[in-house]
Every structure is written in structure tokens, then in C-alpha cells.
């Protein structure tokens, strides 16, 4: 089992979600986040006064899936989230030790 933490632009969320659902992913959690990478921040201007804003808004998806699905999922995410501009985001892939469904106490893959 693997956990994918995917940081993308808000504007790509819907396409990525639908692509992943079509692939067979059955659940995900999303969070509004702020951060910066190579894109850096941006400037905003209030009453003629430039303010450097370091953290730009992105959305983070967290999805746990079977290991054999990961490569296809990465392709789907890249297909839908890539605009070619700096700031498209990142995918982090982490091993998952166990999953427990709270309602039934199922463990492992069948709890996913």
C-alpha cells in the first residue's frame, strides 16, 4: 500500500479527481494549503504599497492506494495537473504500514 500526497493548482483539482476516479480510486481527502517551491511567492499591491506574499495557495490531495496502481495514478495526475508552467506542484509517494477501518476493524488492503 502507498500513500500519495499530491500538491496541485486549485484549477486542476476537478480534472485530477475525475481522472483518478475513472482509474478506480475510491476515496481521497483534500486540504487547502499555502506554500512555495520554485515558483516562489508573488507580490500584491495595496494602496500603492507592494507586499511580498511568500505563500501561494495550492490544494493537497491525500490518497491511499494499492502499490500496483501507483504508476498509473501518477500518469493520470501528471496528465491532468501539468500546465508546463512553474508551480504545477509535486507528488510524494510514501509507504503505508497498515490501514484500519474504524467501523469494522478490517485491516490492510480490504480496509482501503
Amino acid at each position: 500500500m502507498r500513500k500519495l500526497e499530491i500538491i496541485i493548482r486549485h484549477s486542476r483539482l476537478r480534472a485530477v479527481k475525475e481522472g483518478l476516479l475513472a482509474l478506480g480510486v475510491r476515496g481521497m481527502s483534500i486540504t487547502d494549503i499555502k506554500g512555495f517551491g520554485r515558483q516562489g511567492g508573488h507580490t500584491e499591491i495595496y494602496r500603492g504599497n507592494e507586499i511580498q506574499v511568500d505563500f501561494v495557495p495550492k490544494v493537497k490531495l491525500e490518497i491511499v492506494m494499492k502499490a500496483e496502481l501507483v504508476d498509473k495514478a501518477v500518469d493520470v495526475i501528471r496528465e491532468h495537473a501539468c500546465t508546463g508552467q512553474v508551480g504545477d506542484g509535486k507528488i510524494f509517494i510514501l509507504p503505508v504500514e497498515n490501514v484500519i477501518r474504524i467501523r469494522t476493524d478490517e485491516r490492510g488492503v480490504c480496509a482501503m
Binding site: 504599497n49 511580498q52 506574499v53
Partner: peptide, 8 residues
């Protein structure tokens, strides 16, 4: 305050 002040 960050550089330039706090945004509204």
C-alpha cells in the same frame, strides 16, 4: 510584519 506590511 512581512515586507511591505500586512495584507488586508
Amino acid at each position: 510584519l512581512q515586507q511591505g506590511g500586512a495584507p488586508p
